[in-house]
């Protein structure tokens, strides 16, 4: 039982971390729109978080799979598939020359991920208590 609690504690902390990263992304995008940051700096700042973000989320999902937490696993699976697809299409990194064209999509994507990690955080907390 202790192991399971630990797993969900870990999941909650990780979700919170990913949640904060998404908040950071959204703030940066709105900074770009207000001209507070230029596209090159924006992309180099965001890009360093992209892969850690993917990896953290994938590790978490694999942990759920290995421990047989099927519901949690299925909850996270669609996002893993989406991330893998973005990675395979080589569209996971932000490109300074295209950022203004993709901005509305990028914003939406980050916002949906934010909501996802938010729910994920609360679900984990719920189970943990």
């Amino acid at each position: 039982m202790g192991g399971e609690a630990l797993l969900f504690l870990f999941a909650a902390i990780l979700s919170a971390l990913l949640l904060f990263i998404m908040v950071y992304f959204i703030i940066m995008f709105s900074d770009l729109e207000c001209d507070y940051i230029n596209p090159i700096d924006l992309c180099s700042k965001l890009n360093q978080f992209v892969l850690p973000n993917y990896i953290a989320h994938t590790v978490l999902t694999v942990l759920f799979l290995l421990t047989g937490k099927w519901l949690s696993f299925l909850f996270n699976l669609p996002l893993v598939i989406y991330n893998v697809k973005r990675y395979m299409d080589n569209k996971h990194m932000y490109d300074a020359t295209e950022i203004f064209r993709t901005l509305s999509y990028d914003k939406k994507e980050s916002f949906i991920k934010l909501i996802f990690f938010f729910i994920s955080f609360f679900l984990c907390k719920l189970i943990f208590y």
Partner: peptide, 14 residues
């Protein structure tokens, strides 16, 4: 909404 040409877009209108 968008700009096309040989340049680098620094902001949506710059």
């Amino acid at each position: 909404k968008a700009c096309y040409g040989n340049f680098f877009l620094m902001a949506s209108d710059l």
